[in-house]
Simulated assay, not measured.
Amino acid sequence: MIEAAMIWNEPNNKSHWDPELDPGWAIFAETARLAGRAIREANPGLPRVLGGISPIDPAFILNMAERGAMEEIDVVAVHGFPLDWNLWKIDEWPAKINEIRAVTSKPVWVSEVGISTFGAEEVQVWGLNRTAELLIGKAPRIHWYSLYDLPQAWGATTRHREAEGSSYYRHFYMGLLREDGSPKPAIDHFAQHAPQMGLCQWFHFEDHRLDDAVAWMRRLGVRHLRTGLSWADSFRPNALDWFDRQMEALAEFDVTVTFCFTPEHRGLAPHHSSPPQVPAEFAEFCGSMVHRYAPARATVAA
Rank of each mutant, 00 (worst) to 15 (best):
I2W: 04
M6R: 04
I7F: 09
W8Y: 13
P11G: 12
D18Q: 06
D22N: 06
G24Q: 08
A26N: 12
A32S: 13
L34K: 06
P44K: 14
R48G: 12
I53Y: 08
I53V: 15
I56Y: 02
F60Y: 12
I61Y: 05
N63K: 15
E66A: 15
R67Y: 02
G68R: 07
A69L: 12
E71H: 07
E71S: 07
D74M: 11
V76T: 09
V78K: 01
G80I: 04
P82R: 07
L87G: 06
W88K: 11
P94K: 07
I97N: 01
N98R: 15
E99Q: 13
A102D: 09
S111M: 05
S111K: 01
V113P: 01
I115A: 14
T117W: 00
G119S: 11
V123E: 09
W126S: 13
L128T: 03
R130W: 11
A132M: 03
E133V: 00
G137D: 15
K138Q: 15
I142P: 00
S146Q: 07
L150T: 09
A153P: 03
G155C: 09
G155I: 09
R159Q: 14
E164I: 00
E164S: 01
S167Q: 13
H171A: 00
E179Y: 07
S182A: 11
K184Y: 13
P185E: 10
A186C: 14
D188L: 11
H189D: 13
A194S: 15
G198E: 06
G198K: 06
Q201F: 08
H204K: 00
D211M: 05
A215I: 09
A215L: 14
W216S: 02
V222F: 10
V222L: 09
V222W: 07
T227E: 03
T227F: 01
A232L: 06
A232P: 00
E248N: 14
D254W: 08
V257D: 04
H265S: 13
H265L: 11
G267P: 07
L268G: 03
A269P: 09
H272Y: 15
P276E: 04
V278P: 05
P279I: 13
E284Q: 13
F285R: 02
F285L: 05
G287H: 07
M289W: 01
A301K: 08
